[in-house]
Design a protein around this nucleic acid. Sequence first.
DNA 1: CGATTATTTAAGCAATTGCTTAAATAATTA
DNA 2: TAATTATTTAAGCAATTGCTTAAATAATCG
Lengths: 125, 125
Amino acid sequence: MNGNTCIRLFADQAQIMACQVKLKTAQKAFSSLSAVLSLAGNEVRLKIMYLLEEENELCPCDLSDILGMTIPAISQHLKKLKDGGIVQTRKEGQTVFYSLVKEFLPTLNPFFTHINSETLKTEVP
Amino acid sequence: MNGNTCIRLFADQAQIMACQVKLKTAQKAFSSLSAVLSLAGNEVRLKIMYLLEEENELCPCDLSDILGMTIPAISQHLKKLKDGGIVQTRKEGQTVFYSLVKEFLPTLNPFFTHINSETLKTEVP
DNA sequence: CGATTATTTAAGCAATTGCTTAAATAATTA
DNA sequence: TAATTATTTAAGCAATTGCTTAAATAATCG
């Protein structure tokens, strides 16, 4: 970054430094949470997570049928979720069942709660 | 989408249709929530939101100093947050103060709680 | 008014995303 | 073993993202 900062005299230098310290101590939390949020920030993946929560486990095939998308498209989303540690797999014959990793439920549950309450709000007048 | 769906005989057709119905009723909730999550899924924007929650309001100048980024970079992130309805502005002289829109706090608070608790977890052994 | 300061906007560009189609892996079944 | 089925991987590509630099808007102050 070059010298594009502002020159203002009345900057609260103490406030700025305090904020920098807060960010620095929480750095790991910010990067891990933003990684999860960016995965959940895709509408298709958010739906996949929601469905896995509701149904416990689903195969790429089911998800493809439910979401009306091609298998490779689904598979690539699942790969990202698995790389992010959010889902796990169980193989049964040639079918692979995906499910949520329970350690992530505390992070994800507020999303699902939000979805359900928003839906109720609009559906029950 | 072409005919790339799977052929399996033992698909639970009732389950698939039930899932489709759930998604359809919650469609608006999914699209609005994923929009917020994708904004929060950027680490810089997540930090900006967190800082606005902690400090009540900040100007682009302050955020630039705190985050060590150029003013235009910050300004563009703030524009996205404003377009998403997450932040609002108040002008005082030539300074623009940004703050969180309170209607979003129920959605955002779990993130901040998560950040704070994760940080405590790692900092207090 | 003219210079300074805070912010926004625009253009450019490398990197990433999310799909498509086609091919490669595995596991099952005839 | 050969054909079928479920899934993954790879390559290609249009669209989006997030920065940079430079220019445009505004508001303040001498």
